[in-house]
Design a protein around this nucleic acid. Structure first.
Lengths: 218, 218
DNA sequence: GCCGGAGAAACGGTATACTGTATCCTGTTC
DNA sequence: GAACAGGATACAGTATACCGTTTCTCCGGC
């Protein structure tokens, strides 16, 4: 057990994973330009595997290609609204499935993630909160039997995450996240599918509202 | 009007579109091996753009890469069930949105697609029915304002289509498709979102049941 | 000082060449 | 005749090189 991840033998796959992780952790800002030849020099490979990784990220919506390097997408209100619409359609039901299928080991991991999130909030560490949030999501998504459903959720949740990383500095947003995680956690450990469904549904509603009410800068 | 498609300037994009179209039309069988260098020679370009197109198709689940060329994925019962689960989550609501947003011009196109489908059934032309079915779907999906939702639906519906192309020879499956198209069409022209929702929901249920009941060969 | 244009630079896209590996095929041995 | 070894083959993957286009910069004219 534990070796869930594929081998990811090829350079392209490794680079893709690395870049994705950096994006998820917020290590790549909106200013950074991802240029194949630059990344290639850094890690000592040629352009091609880097290029393939970037194209794959672009195809999945994680970055957008410009005439001057690949950049994080700038999501306007409409984009974020679209993303939340899809998430509201999928994630509640997926959370219900996860509550049914999750193992005890997963419950422990979830508890750790919640604890990390709480610590991060106490320490006013927005980056740590984002990380714990991503971790929590990866755990319950990993428990899904339907891999296609899992992949679809990951994509959309990550895309929203990139934008929300900025709003995680707001104390009330932090509270929404923490409470959302706690409520979902409770639903998972009790294997209560309906509670998980409702917790996710309510969380998405709160998160979307918080995003739009806190965003008053152009 | 009509120039909905992007420019698709690059060779990779064109090749990707061409291959995708061939897959959707069923022109590529389960036996065919898609090899970059072979396709490249056919159309007179180098391997790279073909390779990028194939990788993109593989990333989206349309093909799978083997050590001996790219091939259509062989979906087992579990895969198909997973796909239908996602579709049931998304498509009914998307159809409801489409009913709200669709233009009169789209209604005309839908009517043509339904007529083509009916002709195909009368002529016992399973390929024509598949084509009309794809066309119908592209029209209502194209009317969606939420592009991310539209892309997600296209992916899953196409994947199922590849498998179902085989079952479209069954007369009762043909009837299910025709009736589904008619009912959806009626909902769209009357701009009845709830009717569109229910029509799509019922259609997916019927289609899934038909698939699993008709498939009794290993 | 500001605008415009020529040239340079940076980057994405494509082509060609090389390498590694899994599959296939042939030949040999028991 | 079956089983295994070793080479041939056919791919994907990676590296390097070239080309076209967009953007930036800097210089000169108004």
């Amino acid at each position: 057990m534990g070796a869930r991840r594929k081998a990811a033998a090829s350079l392209s796959s490794q680079i893709h994973s690395d870049l994705l992780q950096k994006i998820q952790r917020g290590e790549i800002g909106p200013e950074d330009r991802l240029v194949d030849i630059g990344i290639a020099r850094e890690i000592g490979v040629s352009r091609m595997p880097v290029r393939e990784a970037l194209l794959r990220l672009a195809n999945d919506g994680y970055v957008v290609g410009t005439t001057r390097g690949f950049v994080l997408p700038t999501l306007d209100r409409r984009d974020v609204a679209d993303i939340f619409e899809v998430r509201r359609l999928i994630e509640p039901r997926a959370a219900a499935n996860a509550a049914r299928d999750m193992s005890d080991a997963d419950h422990d991991l979830l508890r750790q993630a919640v604890a990390n999130a709480e610590d991060a909030v106490r320490a006013h560490d927005a980056g740590g909160l984002a990380l714990a949030n991503v971790r929590f999501r990866q755990i319950w998504i990993g428990a899904l039997a339907n891999r296609r459903l899992a992949e679809t959720i990951s994509r959309f949740a990550d895309q929203a995450q990139v934008v929300r990383a900025g709003t995680l500095y707001q104390p009330d947003t932090q509270q929404i996240v923490i409470q959302g995680l706690r409520r979902q956690y409770d639903a998972y450990v009790t294997r209560d599918s309906m509670a998980a469904h409702d917790a996710m549904s309510d969380f998405l509603t709160s998160a979307e509202r918080a995003f739009f009410s806190e965003l008053h800068r152009p």
